[in-house]
Design a protein around this nucleic acid. Structure first.
Length: 425
RNA sequence: GGAGAGCUGGCUGAGUGGUCGAAAGCGGCGGUCUUGAAAACCGUUGACCCGAAAGGGUCCGGGGGUUCGAAUCCCUCGCUCUCCGCCA
């Protein structure tokens, strides 16, 4: 959520800055709601003040033993009027909040212009796409030919966009999770955390998935309004919802491994083959809570932490800065990590690292107590995949493939697999 | 699933219809004292909203109700704890 004060005082500037994302802010609707809000709030507060002071007088009169009946009827009329004013104020405030919750974050000045992913800016490239002197296969063929990847049975169990892994591939999948958590906890200073995979709607509102993106979520049908998490970002960032954190405890850095569930509504026909786009996948997620003046430095650091996993796995990748049209709803700035997939002859997103500035913390009321002012201030939140495990597995299969159908396992993972160097049938 | 008890500020905890945003203690901050620290003592210390300010308003788990007036009474939902049942 944007700062309501900013909307009130610099509306046209906000509108202009949002045009970078190709978002058209309806200034007329906002101004009309805000005008009503102000008038109603002033009215309601006047009535409240009157009621409070006159009720106090009744209390005093009663103590003096006076007849309070005439006073009572006078204030009763006031109370009715107040009730009405409060009700209309509540309605307008609700409408205003609903409007504000659908406005995306302001993109940072450094975000490149552009309307879609073709406008993203390549910042750096690491590693080189290997040359294969045989015809390369994609991960589906590799995995199925090894007998380790099974989409047919997955669709029998559930439906499309699910996968079954077996044997060494299931083990490699588990090893990847372990490896990522170990690097981030032991070397990058993150605290490992285990969180619920079901969350309530307040949490989803806090990080920005609700109210606008309900169709991307899986909701439980039971009597409780629970949702499957689309990313660990939701439970981990909401850990500090409605909290005021001691400044000395900052930065807070968490790493969590969770499954993620996404309905992928609106992506029909995209990435239907293989495990690139699944309804269920595993992810190791990095989340940071930092002081506002440190958040852009933290974004560089967090991105570097995610990149480190790709480097250790010897996977070629590039880093792109998302343009205004491609950046997510809540983010002020995002770097995507894209891994090279020989099977597609393309770089594909494997991690997305974002600085949300105060956008999420304002929704969540996640604050810290500033050492100078001794006042609560909004934190800045960041997160990034470190990494998406399913896609990492895809990248390992495709980049490690050999002519005979076997797959080389990078040396960083071998300690997690009793030294195993190859996937073979 | 059944029965009961609770939910108050950063924490502990008092408050059961009137000047209560709320005693007291702890913690925090500032000061006195001290070579320094501790102790002691003094002062100070909730969040949010409107407002340039003065000031005003809201908030005692959420929502609703009763009342001139609600932390306090009623209803409802959520959560926590205890006992019973079931269960990985």
């Amino acid at each position: 959520m944007l700062d309501p004060k900013l909307l009130r005082t610099k509306l046209s500037e906000v509108k202009e800055r949002l045009q970078k994302r190709h978002f058209d802010l309806d200034m007329g609707q906002y101004e009309s709601l805000e005008k009503q809000r102000k008038a109603l709030q002033i009215r309601a507060q006047e009535l409240q003040q009157k009621r409070n002071s006159e009720s106090k007088e009744i209390g005093q009169a009663k103590q003096r033993g006076e007849d309070i009946e005439p006073l009572k009827s006078k204030v009763a009329a006031l109370a009715d009027e107040l009730k009405q004013a409060e009700a209309s104020l509540g309605q307008v405030q609700e409408a205003l909040l609903a409007f504000e919750l659908t406005i995306p974050n302001l993109p940072h000045d450094s975000v490149p212009d552009g309307k879609d992913e073709t406008g993203n800016l390549e910042l750096r490239v690491w590693g080189e796409a290997k040359h294969y002197d045989f015809e390369v296969k994609d991960h589906v063929d590799i995995g199925e030919q090894l007998g380790l990847l099974d989409f047919e049975r997955a669709s029998k169990l559930t439906g499309s966009r699910f996968s079954v892994l077996r044997g060494d591939l299931a083990r490699l999948h588990r090893a990847l999770i372990q490896f990522m958590l170990d690097v981030h906890t032991a070397e990058h200073g993150y605290q490992e955390i285990y969180v619920p995979y079901l969350v309530n709607s307040e949490s989803l509102r806090g990080t920005g998935q609700l109210p606008k993106f309900a169709e991307d979520l899986f909701a439980l049908a039971g009597e409780k309004e629970f949702f499957l998490i689309p990313t660990a970002e939701v439970p981990v960032t909401n850990l500090h919802r409605d909290e005021i954190i001691d400044a000395n405890a900052l930065p807070l850095k968490y790493v969590a491994h969770t499954p993620c569930f996404r309905s992928e509504a609106g992506s029909y026909g995209q990435d239907t083959r293989g495990m690139i786009r699944q309804h269920q996948f595993e992810k190791v997620e990095l989340v940071q809570f930092v002081r506002p003046d440190e958040s852009y430095q933290a974004l560089e650091q967090l991105t570097y932490h995610a990149e480190e996993i790709l480097r250790r796995l010897e996977l070629p990748y590039r880093v792109v800065s998302l343009c205004g049209g491609d950046i997510g709803f809540s983010a002020a700035k995002t770097f995507d990590l894209e891994v090279w997939l020989p099977g597609q002859q393309k770089y594909r997103e494997i991690s997305s690292c974002s600085n949300f500035e105060a956008f999420q913390s304002r929704r969540m009321l996640a604050r810290y107590r500033d050492l100078d002012s001794n006042k609560p201030e909004l934190l800045h939140t960041l997160n990034g995949s470190g990494l998406a495990v399913g896609r990492t597995l895809v990248a390992l299969l495709e980049n490690g493939q050999q002519q005979d159908g076997s797959v080389t396992i990078p040396s960083a993972l071998r300690p997690y697999l009793n030294g195993q160097e190859l996937l073979t049938p």
